[in-house]
Amino acid sequence: MKKIWLISTVGRALAVILCVMTAVFFLIRMVPGDPAKMILGEYSTPEAVESMHHALGLDLPLGEQFIRFVKTLFTQGDTGNSIINGTSTRELIADRAPVTLLLIGMACALAIVIALVLATLAATHKDKLLDHLIRIFPTVTLGMPIFWVGILLILLLSVHLHWFPVGGVGEGWWGTLYSLTLPAITVAFSQIPTLVRSLRAQMLEVLESDFVVTLKAARLPSRVILFKHVLRNAALPTLILLGVNISYLIGGTLVVEQVFGIKGIGSLLFSSISKRDFPVIQGIALYCAVSVVIISLLIELLSRWLDPRTKGKP
């Protein structure tokens, strides 16, 4: 049973990666703009553009370009060299990846901690003032564009209060963490509302269940009931929701990097899109898809471990 589940899960993951790889390859070539003219300039001659097309392999049929792309990907673990500067896509992404991965990790951790605190307070103070205030928070913030939230936080916490730098990445570990705190809060803002709403609803449902009533009758401490039993049973649907939203979190991180002037994968992506640098765009999309699939797989494994119905099953 476990082998069948694992095989099907890995099969779905590979299918998603293959679909993303194919879609990105063909869709990016439908976007107006010629990489050769981007390199040679606006006043380049038709002969020079044709020669550049041949050098870049853009004069080949799409099918042959796709086969070459797939072959390069599987033999070199790369999507090719950058059209603009000739550097390996893998090297370009690897150079920018650490700051982006750190930002994603910080944002995810903040979203989980803040959502956990708010949902617990709301569920344990049902229909009281604190519960109503916390329930208003997701309603107000859910429709806010993430870049707008970032600009507001910069104006409030950086420009007026001077608590955080306006943008960029500081030096050293402490400087890096300090400078990424505000961007991480901005990215977490996009995930907190849905997580709070889901976790609060699940906690209320568990608090009203028969086994919790039995535990209360047995006079177990409220803290033990809440953290050992209620949270564990309520966390499963919210954890699955986080796995579903992880792609939005990664996408939001790439946008927030532009707002805060962080030289991560996001700035590389937008720069490559403006220059029609196909290999770099394909590489970023593919690596992001692989990251989403791996994280979703880990969350699915954790969900099975938390689900009491799967305990002891093969």
Rank of each mutant, 00 (worst) to 15 (best):
E300L: 07
G175I: 06
K128A: 03
I28H: 05
L6Y: 10
T100N: 07
G11W: 12
R197G: 02
E42N: 10
S267D: 06
C19E: 05
P165Y: 04
V292A: 14
K126E: 15
P221G: 14
L204N: 13
Q65D: 00
M38C: 08
T89A: 15
F25W: 04
R219S: 07
V70F: 05
F278P: 00
A285M: 15
I83H: 12
A218T: 03
K263F: 04
K126H: 15
L62R: 08
S8Q: 13
S291K: 11
T120C: 04
V20M: 15
R223W: 10
S44R: 05
S271Y: 07
G57Y: 04
R200F: 02
V230I: 15
F270R: 06
C288Q: 08
I136K: 13
I84R: 14
I281P: 00
V16R: 12
A111F: 07
V244E: 13
A218V: 04
T72I: 12
Q282W: 09
K3S: 12
E64A: 12
S88I: 05
L195H: 13
L239H: 04
I93N: 02
I294G: 08
C19Q: 10
H132D: 07
F25G: 04
I240P: 00
V280S: 05
K128D: 01
G11Y: 12
L182V: 07
G252V: 06
A122E: 02
F137G: 05
F26K: 09
L249W: 09
S198N: 15
L297W: 11
S198K: 14
G168E: 02
V10T: 10
L116P: 00
C288T: 12
P98D: 07
K37R: 15
R219E: 04
L110K: 01
S296R: 13
L298M: 13
T75D: 03
T45S: 15
L118F: 06
R232N: 08
F26A: 08
I192E: 05
P138R: 09
I185C: 11
T238A: 14
T79P: 01
D127R: 15
I17L: 15
A55M: 09
V256Y: 11
T181D: 06
I83A: 11
L92V: 00
L101N: 02
L153V: 04
E171H: 10
A122N: 04
A201V: 11
V169Q: 05
L92K: 03
V10D: 05
K3E: 08
I284Q: 08
A122K: 05
S274F: 08
M203I: 12
I114T: 09
V213K: 14
I151K: 12
I262S: 03
L60Y: 01
E208N: 15
V292W: 13
R276H: 09
T310C: 07
L241S: 11
G63K: 08
L58N: 00
L60H: 03
P165N: 08
F26H: 06
